[in-house]
Nucleic acid binder design. Sequence first.
DNA 1: GATGAATGAGGATTCATTCAT
DNA 2: AATGAATGAATCCTCATTCAT
Lengths: 207, 207, 207, 207
Amino acid sequence: MPKVSDTHRAARRRQVLDAATECFARQGFHRTTMQDIVREAGLSAGAVYGYFAGKDDIIEAISAERHERERELIRQARGLPAAEVLRRLARDFLGSLTERDEQKRRRVGVQVWAEALREPRVMRLVRRGIDEPLRLLTQVIEQAQARGEIAPGLDAQAVSRAIVALFHGFVLQQSWDPRVKVAPYLAAIEAVIDALLAHRGAAGKKA
Amino acid sequence: MPKVSDTHRAARRRQVLDAATECFARQGFHRTTMQDIVREAGLSAGAVYGYFAGKDDIIEAISAERHERERELIRQARGLPAAEVLRRLARDFLGSLTERDEQKRRRVGVQVWAEALREPRVMRLVRRGIDEPLRLLTQVIEQAQARGEIAPGLDAQAVSRAIVALFHGFVLQQSWDPRVKVAPYLAAIEAVIDALLAHRGAAGKKA
Amino acid sequence: MPKVSDTHRAARRRQVLDAATECFARQGFHRTTMQDIVREAGLSAGAVYGYFAGKDDIIEAISAERHERERELIRQARGLPAAEVLRRLARDFLGSLTERDEQKRRRVGVQVWAEALREPRVMRLVRRGIDEPLRLLTQVIEQAQARGEIAPGLDAQAVSRAIVALFHGFVLQQSWDPRVKVAPYLAAIEAVIDALLAHRGAAGKKA
Amino acid sequence: MPKVSDTHRAARRRQVLDAATECFARQGFHRTTMQDIVREAGLSAGAVYGYFAGKDDIIEAISAERHERERELIRQARGLPAAEVLRRLARDFLGSLTERDEQKRRRVGVQVWAEALREPRVMRLVRRGIDEPLRLLTQVIEQAQARGEIAPGLDAQAVSRAIVALFHGFVLQQSWDPRVKVAPYLAAIEAVIDALLAHRGAAGKKA
DNA sequence: GATGAATGAGGATTCATTCAT
DNA sequence: AATGAATGAATCCTCATTCAT
């Protein structure tokens, strides 16, 4: 009967995590009380503690989830040609930001970024969450450089960081103003990527 | 100890703000107690409350200061030619991030970004702090487009957002890992800017 | 310790209210700390706050209770003949003041009277607490006047206020000196009432 | 030069006492901070402490003043015939309550009554303030009883307490509702006094 | 004497977590 | 396994009083 129990456990954890996300998006980690989460989840205090060790544990679980999602996007992009990887990541990553729900999760994500600065466990997750994309991108950039698609003098990791920055920076801006539109930004990003890629040694390859 | 000059008042405020910045950088807004700030400032609780209405007021003052600094950078760049503005902003903005002290302040800045999501007063400051740069950049981009230096099809504001994102995104990454070096990133950014700017006059290739 | 009956809740409120009354009678509202009440009640701080929103709420609840008691006395006197009502109120009201416990509650009552001056919520309760007696008494006086038992020239409400004053004034005096005896005062009051009531039918002598 | 100094001291004390009365009438003893009094008095904190040992000392001084005033009224009534004493006290005491300023002072007086319960020094003043009137009244009553103007069976002190209660009780009622009019109450009181006095052994004496 | 900034103990309240039922 | 009342340490803030200038 562990099967049922496990499913049940997972469902309950989801319930708590969703409730917490809702609260965190609304009022931030620190204005949210466990009571808020408990109420939002429709559970009892005791029940929540049956699934999570405490508030920090919930924050950690949410942080982990956030990064799991991103790693997923990365995995799907693996193995594609450089230009394709970048465009794909841009589309996948930014594309999801048109959905209300993902925006909500991202608001929490921004708080995770700040939380990392004071909570080593969260920091570890955030770092892990950025290392994998950076590694993939660096690889891709290096390949592109090898093929002469990108200026060889550039530090591949720095370029990768710039690309990640384009994503994170947009998340920030959208968190401060949900009306900021994704489409034009995506177009601009693609232009930047094109600018970065298309030129140099190689000429007409592009797009 | 009566009849104190404005200079004295200003100095005391600085004292508190510096102490708070120190604490916030170390432990975050919410792990920092007023007692921590009081101790760090070498004052009494009452004294601090003579200068600030409470913790939120201190956070707000720090947020405001942060953005004041940025606005200053913006003002200095006004009136220069497009390429110059962008390069200058990149150098000024990122350049300061090599200093330990500015890094500390930026760690606090990241928390301000998150705090904005739950504190309308801070949100207002953050928004005001991003609007001015965006306006300047958009102007610059439009001028560059008019001169054919940038692809005319791009949304000037979206491009501006991308540029801001390159800055903010780097601040995030450096806050998670202070070892991240500024120089290569600056070089990469300049390459991106060059890629964006330098190439268009030459032909209708793009877009 | 979940799922607690309403009886239990009521008992806990009583526990807090009694503890508070004890403390208030001893040291007054403002020298009494929540910690004092908590200790006296044998509960934890959190528990008390589970039943009352704060000190003011406790004061308010006690004020309400005080007046509820009085309204009860009033209700029992309703419908009786004038002389009977007055004598009965005097006996009931003053009679209870021989008990140590009621004296304690009255000490708190005196503080409620002062508290009303600064706390609108308490003021409302005090006013409501005096209106009902005044209304009843005024009615009774008017009836007595109609029957010629009391000089018709007197303002019935003013006479009612005088009667209430006889009660309140005694409470004050006894709060300052618990040795003040009820019995002689009651006798004096009854004489006054008699003087007021008994004599009028006999002629239009008076003023 | 002590003369000037003394006058000056007295004036300053008045200034503080008036400011305090203003604040106490408005917000009560315990909501009033020394800062409030300092501001209202237009002095500095240090200055106030030059004239009073602290807040309690100010409260005490105000209590003392209150009772001084009453004692004054008493003194003026001394030596008059019984009926005259009572009528005079009623008129003097209640008459002043038509003035806005006296009402304000009385609001503070009500708080003094409550404060007495927790501050022995104030209690002493309140007791002293009530003993003198009681003594005078008791004397007067006893004289009247000797002359057969009042029923001899009554406890003279209890009757005195009743008379004091008629005053205090009215002060309470007016503090809760400043619209309560003095004139009809005074008339009612006089009727009560008459009822008490005029009858018994003696017949047509009255007035 | 006057000033008012500074002090810091004191007090109200909150909230993560526990545990008896 | 679930419940939610109870716990109590932690924290923010106030304000009577002092004392250097």
